[in-house]
Write a protein that binds this DNA or RNA. Sequence first.
RNA 1: GGGUCGGUACCGAAGCGGUCAAACGGGGCAGACUGUAAAUCUGCUGGGCUCCGCCCUACGGAGGUUCAAAUCCUUCCCGGCCCA
Length: 393
Amino acid sequence: MPHSLVPSLVEGFRVRLIIKEKNMFTLLSTSTKSKARLGVLHTAHGDIPTPIFMPVGTQATVKGLTPDVLEALDAKIILSNTYHLYLRPGNDVMEHFGGLHKFMHWNRPLLTDSGGFQVFSLQELRKLSEEGVHFKSHIDGSAHFFSPESVVDTQRIIGSDIMMVLDECVENPAKYSYVRKSIELSLKWAAASREHFLNTEPLWGFPQYQFGIGQGSMYKDLRQEYVERMVEIGFDGYALGGLSVGEATEQMYEVIDWCTDLLPADKPRYLMGVGTPANLLEGISRGIDMFDCVMPTRNARNGQIFTTRGKFNIRNARFKFCDEAIDPGLDSYASQNFTLGYLRHLVMSDEMLGVQLASMQNIAYYLWLMEQSRKHLADGTFEEFRSHCSTYL
RNA sequence: GGGUCGGUACCGAAGCGGUCAAACGGGGCAGACUGUAAAUCUGCUGGGCUCCGCCCUACGGAGGUUCAAAUCCUUCCCGGCCCA
C-alpha cells in the first residue's frame, strides 16, 4: 500500500480525504562506473521507471500527438505548464473539468512546471517582486500575479502528480551579485511554496508531490549553497533549473556534477529543460533521473528527425527518393511504416501528418534512449551504451 | 486584318535612362532550435573568381539612339483583350 488514505470529518457533513505523501522514489541501484542511477517513481497514476524522459505538453497537449499515441509510444509521464494553463483555459475551466488528467484524457502521471521558466522566457512581460511575479499575459496583455502560494493552488486545481515550485530561472550569463540576490528570492519562494503545499490538500483524491528547483547560475558556491538550503526545506524531489540557457555544454555538465554530489540519494533528481540525446546520457551518468525538453517535438515540427542512425533534417534533398523506413531501429508506428521519402514529401507539403509522424518518431527515439539506458543500467553496461551512442549523436 | 495592353531571374510580380544581377511573394537549397509567445526563425537562390571586391552573361529576338538602356526608338516573334 503505497499511500495511506485517512478519511476524516471536516466542516460538519463533508467528508474529505486527508492524503499523506510518503517517499515517492525507490532507488534500485547505482552504477559502479558513474553516478548513474536506476529507480522507480511512485505516483497515483502509475509507477515511472527512471531514468525517464518526459515529453512536453505545455498547453494540455503534446503537440501533434494524441494520448493513445503517447501510450503506444509508452510515454510514462508528460509535462504541462502552470502559467499557460492558468491563462488559458483558466483555473475555473480546469476545475470544471475535474483537473488536467480528465480534461486532456491522460490517465498516466503528469508533472507541471510552475511558470518559473516563463520568468526567463517572457522576461519582457514580467516584473519580479519579493512576493512573486507580475506577468503581462503574452496572449492579451492582461495583468496577472503569481505567488509561490497561488502557483501551488493552481497546480492543486490542475491536479498534477508532481508540481514544481515557483522560481526565477536566471538568464545566462548573469552577474554574481544578481544571482546572489536571485537565489535568496527563489529560496524564500521555495520555503513559502513548501509550507503552502503542506498546508493544503489535493483536490482530486490522489496524492501530489512537490519538487524544489535548484538555481545559482554557473557559480559553484551559489549552486552548492542553494542545493543545501533547498534540501533543508525538504521536497519530494529536487530539480536543477537555470541550465541549457546558453552556457557551454561542458559548463552545464560541471554544474550538474556540483549539485548531484550534494543531493540526497533517496530523492529523485530532475534536470529541467534538457536536452539533446547526448545531454540526457551525460545527465544520467551524472546522477540525473528525470528529463524534459521541447526538442523532440519542436524540432520535429521544424523537420529535424532523431533516429537510431543519427539526426538529420528531413527536408534535405538527399531524402527525396529515399525508400528506407524512417527508423528501422525503432518499433513505433511512424518509424516502421513510412519511408523517409514520404515523410519528406509530407513535411515539404506542410501536411499535418508530417508533423505528427515526425513528432512520433522523435518521441519514440527519446523514449527508446531512456529505455535502453535503463536496460543497460540494469545490466551494468550503461557506459558502453553511452559511448556507442556518442558515435552517431 | 485593325486597335490595344503586355512579354523581367525556377514561378508570380515590381522597376520604366545611370545608385539594377534587378524590390517583394512563392518555390527551392541549407542552417538554427534545450522547464514551448516557435508547424517558428535565419541565411542563400544567374555564372565564375585571387569572393568585405572583381569579371562575365542577363529583363522575348534582332538592330538602333545615348557617355550610359530592363527602362527610349525601329522591326520581328509570342500572348491577353476589343473591333472587323
